[in-house]
Design a protein around this nucleic acid. Structure first.
Length: 230
DNA sequence: ATCCCGTGTA
DNA sequence: TACACGGGAT
C-alpha cells in the first residue's frame, strides 16, 4: 500500500472520525501545554483515563507549572502521587522537572532525542509529547496503536518478534500525517481504546472497516497474534 | 537486543 | 505464585 493510499484510506478517515466523535475535552488536552501532556502521559502509562483524571487534576492544582514542581520537595511530590503506585516514576518526574528548569531555562524540549535523555522518558513518551504537545509528526506505538495496525494491515506473527515490531514502527510512521499530528495521535489512541478493542471490537462503527484487512477477511478476533508460550 | 521494574491477575 | 503487561534503561 502506497503512502498516498494509506493517507486516503486510513489516516484521513481516522482524522475525520476523530473530529466528529473523539475526546477533545480531557483535562490535559490544553493546546501547547507540554507540561500537562507530560504529567498525563506518565500517569497514563500505568492507569486508565477514568482513574487518572482526578489524580491529574489534584496534581496540577498543587503543581500548576513546571517550576512549582521543580521547587517542591520530593516528599511533596510523592504525597500527590500517593495512590497511583510506581513511585519511581514520581521521583523521575521530579528529577526531570528540575533538569528542565535548570538546564533548559523552563522551556520544555520539543525533539525526541532531547526528550529521551530525561529520566523516565523513553521512546514512547518522547514521541507522544512531541506529537501531542508540539504537533510534530513523530509516530507512537503503544498497545492500542499496535492492535489497530496489526488488524488493519493484517500483520501476522507474535508481538515480541523484533521483525513484527519493526514492521509496525514503519507502518506507524507511514500513517502519521504531516499536518494535524496531535489530532492524529489522539485519534489512533482513541480508536484503539473505544472501537478497536481487544475483546468484542466494535467494527460496525469503525471508520476504517471498509478497508481493514482483518475485517475484510473475518480475522479480527485472531489479530494481533498471541504471544507464544515459553 | 536484552534486561529490569511494579503491579494486577489467573 | 507465575506470568502478562507496558513501559524504561543499558
Amino acid at each position: 500500500m502506497s503512502t498516498q493510499e494509506i493517507y486516503e484510506h486510513f489516516t484521513l478517515p481516522l482524522l475525520q472520525w476523530f473530529h466528529q466523535y473523539g475526546r477533545k475535552d480531557l483535562p490535559w488536552q490544553i493546546p501547547g501545554n507540554a507540561y500537562a501532556v507530560w504529567i498525563s502521559e506518565i500517569m497514563l502509562q500505568q492507569t486508565q483515563v477514568r482513574t487518572v483524571i482526578p489524580y491529574f487534576l489534584r496534581f496540577m492544582n498543587t503543581f500548576p507549572t513546571l517550576r512549582t514542581l521543580a521547587c517542591a520537595s520530593e516528599d511533596q511530590v510523592l504525597a500527590q502521587w500517593s495512590g497511583l503506585g510506581y513511585y519511581s516514576r514520581a521521583r523521575n518526574l521530579h528529577k526531570t522537572a528540575k533538569i528542565i528548569c535548570n538546564d533548559f531555562h523552563d522551556y520544555f524540549p520539543d525533539d525526541i532525542e532531547t526528550l529521551m535523555k530525561l529520566p523516565g522518558i523513553g521512546p514512547s513518551t518522547a514521541a507522544a509529547i512531541a506529537s501531542l504537545a508540539f504537533n510534530k509528526p513523530t509516530a507512537i506505538l503503544d498497545g492500542n496503536v499496535k492492535r489497530v495496525l496489526c488488524r488493519y494491515f493484517l500483520i501476522a506473527g507474535s508481538m515480541e518478534q523484533t521483525s513484527v515490531t519493526r514492521q509496525l514502527w514503519q507502518l506507524a510512521k507511514q500513517c502519521m500525517p504531516l499536518h494535524d499530528c496531535a489530532a492524529y495521535t489522539q485519534a489512533i489512541m482513541d480508536l484503539g481504546a473505544t472501537c478497536c478493542t481487544i475483546k468484542s471490537p466494535n467494527c460496525s462503527n469503525c471508520p476504517l472497516h471498509t478497508t481493514c484487512l482483518a475485517y475484510q477477511t473475518n480475522e479480527v478476533a485472531h489479530y494481533p497474534h498471541k504471544k507464544l508460550k515459553k
